[in-house]
């Protein structure tokens, strides 16, 4: 026949595909099962939750979500978490991007290591010193203290994501800009930063997620006004009673923003993470 047939796939190839998708399904099932269990249970009454084996078909109730937002005022805690997460990420970027660029361009690896140490030392080491400092500054229970504390991790993180990224950008770009009369700062802001999108997004997202999930700093440095969601979720675990439904609904509530953020930006994150991997 003259017309080229679409390539016939061999039995082995088909089998390979089938196995591939089966494995994908198994892995997905493994990782998604707890998540689905959480979502299902957030719509159940306490009796239905405790039932073994679980009901797959049931009349959903919104009571748990009402509890989360009306009696527990989870809106406040979400807001606190957003402010602190965005704040620590933003200031982490403001300080971290120039620092990372300087380290990458001028090979200041000593400084980079010093910054890394701040990340390696367990956070709990800083806890009591930070508490004492902030208490003397009258800053306990303010957003500022929490943002500063969360930056302890966000900043090194951003620096270490950005250093290899900046290193992968050809130095000729900056040199060309300098030849055309730009100052170093101009070159950085007008030439380098605009092409660093994926790296910045990666660092920012991961720093934000860290702040969102952080429990230790939040519980010690926040009190009632700045309580964040990971701390507030324990409101559902009381002495001699656990509100599983409320707990699940709250868990879904605090997972959603991060999930949405991750879905929209995962393209950048992957590009950013691999950006510095292969250097020419």
């Amino acid at each position: 026949m003259a017309k080229p047939q679409p390539k016939k796939r061999t039995a082995a190839q088909v089998l390979g595909d089938v196995i591939f998708y089966v494995v994908v399904l198994i892995i997905l099932g493994f990782f998604l099962a707890p998540f689905l269990w959480m979502v299902f249970n957030s719509f159940k009454t306490p009796l239905q939750i405790a039932k073994m084996p679980p009901d797959w078909i049931f009349t959903p109730t919104l009571a748990n979500y009402q509890n989360v937002f009306s009696s527990q005022k989870f809106g406040n805690y979400l807001w606190n978490s957003i402010v602190i997460g965005a704040g620590s990420t933003f200031f982490g970027l403001v300080l971290g991007l120039p620092a990372a660029y300087a380290i990458a361009r001028y090979k200041q690896y000593g400084i980079a290591t010093a910054i890394l140490i701040a990340r390696i030392v367990p956070g709990i080491t800083f806890l009591i010193p930070l508490f004492i400092l902030f208490r003397q500054l009258q800053m306990i229970d303010t957003y500022q203290s929490l943002i500063l504390a969360h930056m302890l991790v966000a900043l090194p993180f951003i620096v270490w994501v950005m250093v290899p990224f900046f290193e992968s950008i050809p130095q000729e770009l900056e040199e060309a800009a300098r030849v055309d009369g730009a100052s170093i700062l101009q070159a950085f802001f007008q030439i380098i930063l605009p092409i660093s999108g994926p790296g910045i997004v990666t660092g920012a997202i991961l720093a934000f997620v860290f702040s969102w999930n952080n429990f230790m700093f939040s519980i010690q440095l926040a009190t009632s006004n700045t309580k964040t969601v990971p701390v507030a979720i324990y409101n559902f675990i009381g002495y001699a009673q656990i509100d599983w439904g409320g707990l699940m609904a709250a868990a879904v509530t605090i997972t959603l923003p991060v999930l949405v953020l991750a879905l929209f930006t995962q393209r950048y994150v992957i590009r950013g993470l691999t950006a510095g991997a292969v250097k020419g």
Partner: peptide, 13 residues
């Protein structure tokens, strides 16, 4: 801590 809130707002940054 009503007194605490306004004071340090601009301090740390």
């Amino acid at each position: 801590k009503p007194t605490d809130a306004p004071k340090p707002t601009d301090a740390p940054k």
